[in-house]
Structures are given as C-alpha cells and as structure tokens.
Computed example of a mutant assay.
Amino acid sequence: MRLSGKTAIVTGGGSGFGAGIVRKFAEEGAKVVVADINADAAETVASEVGGVGRRVDVSDRTSVEEMAREAISTFGRVDILVNNAGTTHLPAPMEEVSEEDFDRVFAVNCKSVYLTARALVPHMKAHGGAILNIASTAGLSPRPRLNWYNASKGWMITATKTMAVELAPAGVRVNALCPVAGETPLLKSFLGEDTPEMRAKFLATIPIGRFSTPADMGNAAAFLCSDEASMITGAALEVDGGRCI
C-alpha cells in the first residue's frame, strides 16, 4: 500500500498504459480520478477500482480546469498527477504529415502538460506531490516516419526536466516514463499496419523480445510516485526492454 492516503489523477486512464497505471495505483491504496476523452472508458475503469471517472479533453483549458476543480473538491487535495493521454500521426515522411495531424499531436502530447500544470501546480506547491509524464522511447531514440510524434515526446522529456528543477524547492517531484510500444490503442498507428510481420519486425528491435505492457507501466509509475522515490526527480526512466541500448 505504497500510495495509501494519496489521491491521483491519471489522464488517458480509460485504456492502455493509463488503465494499467490506474489499476496499480488503486492496488497500492490511492484514490484515483480516471480522466479520458472517452467518458464510457473512464467510467468503466473507475468503477473497477472505486475511483471517479470523468470525460476530459486534455487539450482544452476549460475541460482541464474543471477536472482539477472537481478532483480537489471531491478529495480535498491532489498528490499525484500522471500526464498519460497521448496520440500520434500515422507513419509518413515528415513533409507529408498534415498540419491538422501536427496540431493534434502537439495539443494532446505537449499543450496538455502545460494546461495541467497551470491547473494543478499551484495547488501541489502548497503540500508537495509527484508529477509523472508518460513520454516514449521515441523521444530518446527516434525512428523515421514518426518525426512529429518523436519530437513531441522529446519535448515532454525536456519539459519534465525543467519542471523538476523549478518545482523541487516546493517539494514537487517530476519524472517521466519512456515505454516502447505496447498493446494499446495506438499500436496500429505506430506500426502503420498491425500484422504478424510488422509485429515481428518491431519486436526484433527489443532485446527482451516483447512489448511494454500496462502492468509494466503501472509498476514503474507506482514506484516513481511513491515516497520510495523521494530522491528521484527529473528522471526519464526507460521501460523498454532494452530498446534504447
């Protein structure tokens, strides 16, 4: 029960890695707000763990501010914020990715971190806490044809480090996780097409020989957001089976 007495918000918590983090946090004793653009998915996962489900568009300031107000009103405080919601564009030469897709990737992957910081950092400064940004190995070891997604995750890693430096005196730690692709709704987008051949080609680049799982992410997130990691801030932890070696 490493997170007993803690309250957490997990964006994109209705599926994939986010749902894995929600379930692990609840197992460790946290009360969790499951925030997702898909209201039904948020409610379903929240009902599993006795949490609160809420539809949130993380790229919209009003939606994020309402989420923060509701979480603080319901639980009194927010101790942990996980910026997990993310999206990508389909694999393509960088100059062929549409402006609409570029704007969407940066709104969901980058602007959301800014908006949640505006909404929750003043509150967290008052009592300390932990922020966890879900980045990607794409931000550390980028692959061709996912250029703007790679760039957005590199942005998130840099944002994590600068947030950590600025917020450390207030007792707020900020870290990032860098998973390799996993069994999530985005897998098909990363691969271009989800076929046995494409999976085998991708898995050949991962020394451990498998994708990241929601459980892998939940375990790493629970550690970094617990008091056991009280001396860790500004880290970008690779949960990638050796992909970046």
Rank of each mutant, 00 (worst) to 15 (best):
L3R: 00
G5H: 14
G5T: 11
T7K: 11
T7Q: 06
I9M: 08
S15Y: 13
G16P: 11
G18E: 04
G20W: 09
V22E: 10
V22K: 12
R23H: 06
R23T: 09
F25V: 06
F25P: 00
E27F: 14
E27Q: 12
A30M: 03
K31G: 02
V34K: 13
D36H: 05
A41S: 13
A42V: 07
A46F: 01
A46C: 12
E48F: 08
V49Y: 07
G51Q: 08
V52W: 11
D57R: 10
V58N: 01
V58T: 09
S59R: 06
D60L: 06
D60K: 09
R61Q: 13
R61K: 15
E65I: 01
E66A: 07
E66W: 14
M67A: 09
A68D: 09
S73Y: 06
S73T: 12
F75N: 01
F75D: 00
F75A: 02
G76N: 10
G76Y: 09
V82H: 01
N83V: 15
N84R: 13
N84P: 15
T87E: 04
H89D: 00
L90P: 00
P93N: 04
P93C: 10
E96K: 13
S98H: 10
S98D: 08
E100R: 03
D103R: 08
V105N: 00
V105L: 02
F106H: 07
C110E: 00
V113K: 02
Y114V: 09
Y114S: 00
A119F: 02
L120C: 05
V121L: 06
M124S: 01
K125V: 02
K125S: 04
A126D: 09
I131E: 03
N133R: 12
S136D: 13
T137D: 00
T137P: 05
A138N: 02
P144D: 06
R145Q: 05
N147V: 07
W148P: 00
A151G: 01
I157S: 01
T158P: 04
T158F: 14
T162W: 05
T162V: 14
T162N: 10
M163P: 08
M163W: 12
M163Y: 04
A168W: 12
A168H: 10
P169L: 14
A170K: 14
A170Y: 15
A170P: 11
G171V: 07
A176V: 10
L177W: 08
C178Q: 06
P179T: 04
P179I: 15
V180P: 00
A181D: 00
A181M: 03
P185R: 15
P185W: 14
K188R: 14
K188C: 03
S189Y: 10
E193C: 09
D194V: 04
E197Q: 14
R199P: 15
R199T: 04
F202D: 01
F202L: 10
A204G: 11
T205M: 11
I206A: 05
I206Y: 03
I208H: 08
G209K: 05
R210F: 10
P214K: 06
M217Q: 09
N219E: 15
N219H: 06
A221D: 05
C225S: 08
D227T: 04
D227V: 10
E228Y: 15
S230H: 08
I232T: 11
G234R: 09
A235V: 11
G242K: 12
G242Y: 07
